[in-house]
C-alpha cells in the first residue's frame, strides 16, 4: 500500500504570537510538525507495516521547514518531496492545494493521501479536502477511526460530528484527514533519526510540478489578508472572595444578576 502524507511545518502551539504593524512577528518562534500531520503520518506508517509499500511525504514550505520534515523521515517515512521554491510560499488554501495536487500527480500510483484535520497556524481545515476535489478523489475528513481493506481497495472510517460520528465507506484511492484519537504517533528512534538524513529528500520548483508562477503561492491565491490584528482583550479576571461555599453562592448570583447568562 503506497501512501502520500502531506506534512506542514507550523509554529509550536506554545509559541507566543505577537502582532506588530498588521503582521505576525516571526522572530523567536519555534517550528514543529503540525500535530495533526503526525496522526496522519502515524496512520500511513501503521498501514505500511501491515500491507507493505511506501510512505512519501509532500511538504510545501520554506527552506527552514527541512528540520521538521526530517522528523517525518525519522518517524519512518521513506522519502520527501519538498516544494521549497519561493513561488510556492504564502499561498491560500486553494493555491497550496493546487501545488500539492500537481506534485502528487507526478508521484505515480498511491492508495491513500493522508493529511491532518487542520494546520494549527492558519486553522483552515481546508487543504486536504480541496486536494481531494482537485485530484477528483473521494475524501473523508476528521477521521478518528480507520479500517482499510487493501485487497478490496476500500476503506471504512469514522468521522467526528456534533454529538456522534458518521461512519463513511469509500473506495481507494482517497484523501483522509486525521483527527486526534486516530492513533498515538510514535517517537522517532535513534536509528530512525540517524537514517533520516540518508533518505531521498527532493526539492521541487515550479517546473518539476508543471505549474506557472501565477497559479501558486501568493500570486495564485484567491484570498488576500488585509490586516492581522491582536485579539480583543478580555477584562481582567476577578476573584470572588470568601469560603468556597459562600464564593460559590456569590458567583451564581453574579451570573444571574450581573452577567445575565442564566
Amino acid at each position: 500500500m503506497n501512501s502520500i502524507v502531506c506534512l506542514k511545518e507550523v509554529p509550536d502551539t506554545e509559541a507566543r504570537i505577537e502582532v506588530r504593524d498588521g503582521k505576525v512577528v516571526e522572530e523567536g518562534i519555534q517550528y514543529v510538525v503540525n500535530p495533526y500531520d503526525e496522526f496522519a503520518l502515524e496512520e500511513a506508517l501503521k498501514w505500511q507495516e501491515q500491507n507493505g509499500g511506501k510512505v512519501t511525504l509532500v511538504s510545501l514550505g520554506p527552506e527552514r521547514a527541512r528540520e521538521s520534515i526530517l522528523k517525518g523521515l525519522a518517524m519512518g517515512a521513506d522519502e520527501v518531496y519538498h516544494l521549497s521554491a519561493e513561488a510556492f510560499q504564502n499561498g491560500d488554501s486553494y493555491a497550496t492545494a493546487k501545488a500539492l495536487a500537481a506534485a502528487i500527480s507526478k508521484l505515480g500510483e498511491y492508495d491513500a493521501i493522508f493529511c491532518g484535520r487542520q494546520a494549527v497556524d492558519d486553522d483552515n481545515a481546508a487543504v486536504g479536502i480541496m486536494l481531494a476535489e482537485i485530484l477528483d478523489l473521494p475524501h473523508v475528513s476528521v477521521v478518528s477511526r480507520l479500517e482499510i481493506d487493501i485487497d478490496a481497495k476500500s476503506a471504512k472510517a469514522r468521522r467526528d460530528i456534533e454529538g456522534g460520528q458518521e461512519v463513511v465507506e469509500l473506495p481507494l484511492p482517497a484523501v483522509i484527514t486525521a483527527q486526534k484519537g486516530l492513533n498515538e504517533p510514535r517517537y522517532p528512534s535513534f536509528r530512525g533519526i540517524r537514517q533520516a538524513r540518508q533518505k531521498p529528500f527532493v526539492q521541487w520548483g515550479l517546473e518539476d510540478v508543471g505549474l506557472a508562477a501565477d497559479e501558486v503561492g501568493a500570486a495564485g491565491s484567491k484570498l488576500e489578508i488585509v490586516a492581522v490584528l491582536p485579539p480583543p482583550e478580555r477584562p481582567a479576571g476577578r476573584i470572588i472572595e470568601g469560603e468556597p461555599d459562600e464564593a460559590a453562592r456569590k458567583v451564581v448570583h453574579l451570573l444571574r444578576d450581573e452577567a445575565k447568562v442564566i
Binding site: I17, E224, V228, L229, P230
Partner: peptide, 12 residues
C-alpha cells in the same frame, strides 16, 4: 488564526 492568538481580516 493561530488558535485565536491573532485575527486576520480577509478579502476574497
Amino acid at each position: 488564526i493561530f488558535a485565536g492568538k491573532a485575527l486576520a481580516q480577509i478579502k476574497l
